[in-house]
Design a protein around this nucleic acid. Structure first.
Length: 446
RNA sequence: UGCGGGAUUGUGUAAAGGUAGCACGAAUGGCUCUGAACCAUUUAGUCGGGGUUCGAAUCCCUGUCCCGCAACCA
């Protein structure tokens, strides 16, 4: 007997993961995460990342975490944290129990590792202002100009760093920088900032910290702490990858032979035709009261789609359908619409409604009579049963369902044409009644 | 400019040297219970130029075009 196996096509991430499992990396385990900064509401673009990460974890029987990358108190709020948790739970169908984390919970650990780098002479305190840093960054052919701190002893830098932590400096006065390469063609490697001073209330740690880790320093550490195996992000972080690896290389715990190492992989973000996804513009719509709020059904936010009637299954199907690649693309929004149509077609209970009514009079139906007719709730699922709908001489139909003078392929009511009324009788249109202005006020048939 | 990515029907996405497939769209036809859905048929593609090979979307060379980055944002 021959086995017919469904030909399964893997996307590039599945191929990488399967190769890693086959090679025994991480003991064959898969751990993914969705790491939003709580600085806004999630939209359909984020849905792609959520479905990807949670989907891969499910597919390979791994773990999926929701982690808030809350490293910039100036932009983050608890309101966003709460909405993101709701949206991710709803979309992924995962209760996220015990699997919601915060970068801010790792601040002390990150700080300790920063001191480790300073002690090793791999990081230093810089006194350049943001403006000076920009001026001194150099050009592709000229190296950057460092500050004196680059040559200070580890002891002195450690002391300065502790002073930063303890509030001896104002915002912008000092930063901690990694000592990497003054002339790297990848500007991310030209001594990137690891910590900056931000004197703002953090939504979780309050005023405990006044120095905050930058994304590049923090992200790989967060992944490493959580034992993420495949750290999936969007394409624009591609040339941050050398930095991601460099930082982990500097920390004993993650650079020892056989030590745990997460890896970064990039994919193309979602672009949807006719859809605004810029956080700034969406915020403008909300603040300017052009919409009723983040969950306005016209918004491309996850909560907006939810209110519009999208099911999580349909959005997941959409994400699976569009695939994942490293090429920038523009998905036609009809693809999203197709996903919900397909889903709802299978499970939605049908109801009839009339938006712009016009009276339909059945001339040969008795004046006083009325009867109840059986209507199928869902033609695609008999189990959904039937309901009763009333029928009488005078009914209301959609204005668009009648045309006095109709084109060739008009299948609705027009004088002389017979149609079937849904769940009821065949009727033939005999004409219509108009008011003084010429508007059709009544359609007649028998 | 430097660095890093990318290029397969209209839009996406497969094919790891061996028949270019799938989905959505579009078109045509069918259907007197949603102009939906469904059914049938059709449409249309490997960026250009060289090379390797019996055979190239795939490997090599070369050109072109597109995207991203050069924040004390993530």
């Amino acid at each position: 007997m021959s086995e017919t196996t469904e030909p399964r096509t893997l996307n590039f991430l599945e191929q990488i993961i399967e190769a890693d499992i086959a090679a025994g990396k991480h003991g064959g385990r898969v751990g993914t995460r969705f790491p939003p900064e709580p600085n806004g509401y999630l939209h359909i673009g984020h849905a792609k990342s959520i479905c990807l990460n949670s989907g891969l974890a499910k597919e390979y029987k791994g773990t999926f975490f929701l982690r808030f990358d809350d490293t910039n108190p100036a932009k983050e709020e608890t309101e966003y944290v709460e909405s993101i948790i709701d949206d991710v739970k709803w979309l992924s169908g995962d209760d996220l129990k015990d699997r919601i984390f915060f970068a801010s919970d790792y601040f002390q650990q990150m700080y300790d590792w920063a001191e480790e780098l300073i002690r090793k002479g791999k990081a230093y305190v810089c006194d350049q202002t943001p403006e000076q840093m920009k001026e001194n960054r150099g050009t592709p052919s000229e190296p950057m100009t460092p500050s004196a701190g680059r040559e200070f002893s580890p002891e002195k830098n450690l002391e300065l760093f502790r002073q930063m932590r303890d509030g001896k400096f104002a915002e912008g006065e000092r930063t901690l920088r990694a000592k990497i390469d003054l002339a790297s063609p990848n500007f991310n490697m030209r001594d990137p900032v690891m910590y900056r001073i931000v004197k703002a209330e953090h939504h979780r740690t309050g005023a405990k910290w006044i120095i905050y880790p930058m994304y590049d320093w923090a992200h790989g550490l967060e992944d490493a702490i959580e034992r993420i195996t495949h750290s999936i992000c969007t394409l624009e972080f591609e040339h941050h990858r050398p930095l991601y690896d460099w930082f982990l290389d500097q920390i004993d715990e993650f650079s020892k032979p056989g030590a745990y190492r997460p890896r970064q992989f990039e994919f193309a973000r979602l672009n949807l035709s006719y859809t605004v996804m810029s956080k700034r513009k969406l915020l403008e719509l909300v603040k300017g009261k052009f919409v009723s709020g983040w969950s306005d059904p016209r918004m491309p936010t996850i909560c907006g789609l939810r209110r519009r009637g999208y099911t999580p299954e349909s959005i997941r199907a959409f994400c699976k359908e569009i695939g994942v690649a490293r090429m920038n693309s523009m998905i036609d929004v009809v693809k999203l619409e197709n996903a919900i149509r397909e889903d709802l077609n299978k499970r939605a209970l049908r109801r009839m409604g009339v938006l712009k009514p016009v009276k339909l009079v059945i001339e040969n139906y008795p004046d006083e009579k009325s009867e109840m007719l059986d209507a199928v709730n869902n033609p695609e699922n008999e189990a959904d049963g039937t309901r009763q709908i009333p029928f009488s001489k005078v009914l209301f139909i959609e204005q668009d369902d009648f045309m006095e003078i109709a084109p060739k392929k008009y299948f609705r009511l027009t004088p002389g044409q017979e149609v079937r009324l849904r769940y009821a009788y065949y009727v033939k249109c005999t004409g219509c009644v108009k008011d003084d202005a010429g508007n059709v006020v009544e359609v007649r048939c028998n």
